[in-house]
Amino acid sequence: METSLYLPVKGFLEQAGYTVKGEVGGCDIVGLSEDDPPVVVVCELKLKFNLELILQAVDRASVADEVWIAARVSAKGKGRETDKRYRDLCRRLGIGMLGVTDIGEVNVIVGSVTPMPRTNPKRRSRLMREHQRRKGDPAVGGSTRQPLMTAYRQQALGCASALAAGPLKVRDVRAQVPEAGKILLSNVYGWFERLDRGVYGLSAAGQEALQRWRQPVD
């Protein structure tokens, strides 16, 4: 699975000085440097190098300073990573290639040396904001077909956790989750019940959510 590539590539980017998180804004891996403004690095994962992987990387070019693609290298040496045309295409597009071995070693096949154009500043800002607001790294890059632990879901779970012992006023929940007012009012997931003006309780769906997402949210 593509998720098997996540930790090796995450470690590679962390050694390069980036704070790395998975599944941010539709990207498999997003890394931010400590610079001001941060350097944004995006990496897309696939089990094999193919055209779809390059197309994904091209799409990410509008939000990143560096774009990488990573895939498992062929044990028989017959993968796309050995195709000079594929490597040359990545060079021309400014896309870096990372090869991951069966034992988790990450090697640079093509360096991401050409600055990628920033053509969508709003999308870039949303990506950075989600990365910075998300606590920890709760989503494994390359995950598909399952709900992701976004920053918003983390805060909603924080509200649910605060209400687990019984109904509370919004201001009391806000002491733990600063954006509790908006989250309780919008009730996107149906986890909360408005019992009185400014007073909320936990719904059955909210109780189920706390059981399902049994992981730290802070």
Rank of each mutant, 00 (worst) to 15 (best):
D59A: 15
R60M: 10
A61I: 00
S62I: 08
S62M: 10
A64P: 05
A64C: 05
D65S: 03
D65N: 11
D65L: 03
D65F: 04
E66N: 09
I69D: 13
A70L: 12
A70K: 11
A71L: 08
R72N: 09
V73T: 13
A75L: 15
K76Y: 13
G77R: 10
G79N: 08
R80E: 12
R80D: 02
E81F: 11
E81C: 03
E81G: 05
E81V: 07
E81P: 00
E81I: 04
T82D: 07
D83H: 12
K84H: 10
K84C: 02
K84Q: 11
R85C: 04
R85V: 12
D88S: 14
L89K: 07
R91K: 15
R91C: 10
R91E: 15
R91P: 00
R92I: 09
G94Y: 07
I95K: 05
G96P: 07
G96T: 06
M97Q: 14
M97A: 08
G99A: 14
G99C: 05
V100M: 03
V100S: 03
T101A: 06
T101F: 09
D102E: 15
D102A: 15
I103K: 14
G104Q: 05
G104D: 08
G104Y: 08
V106Y: 03
V106R: 02
V106E: 02
V108F: 02
V108N: 02
V110L: 05
G111S: 14
G111F: 04
G111R: 14
S112T: 01
V113N: 11
P115G: 07
T119R: 12
P121I: 09
K122S: 10
K122W: 03
R123T: 06
R124C: 10
R124T: 10
S125I: 07
S125A: 15
R126T: 02
L127W: 03
L127K: 01
M128Y: 00
M128W: 00
H131L: 12
Q132R: 14
Q132G: 01
Q132D: 13
R133H: 11
R133I: 04
G136R: 12
D137E: 10
D137V: 00
D137Q: 03
D137H: 01
P138F: 11
A139N: 15
A139I: 08
G141R: 08
G142M: 08
R145H: 12
Q146K: 14
Q146Y: 06
P147K: 10
L148G: 09
L148P: 01
M149C: 11
A151G: 04
Y152V: 11
R153A: 05
Q154M: 09
Q154T: 05
Q155M: 11
Q155V: 01
A156L: 13
L157H: 06
L157I: 10
C159A: 05
C159L: 04
C159T: 04
S161W: 05
S161T: 11
A164T: 01
G166N: 06
G166I: 02
K169M: 10
K169T: 02
K169V: 00
K169C: 04
K169S: 02
D172N: 14
D172S: 15
V173W: 09
A175T: 12
Q176T: 12
V177P: 04
V177H: 07
P178T: 07
P178G: 07
E179F: 01
A180K: 02
G181W: 04
G181I: 01
K182M: 06
K182D: 13
K182G: 01
K182Q: 11
K182R: 13
S186R: 10
S186C: 00
V188L: 07
Y189F: 09
G190H: 07
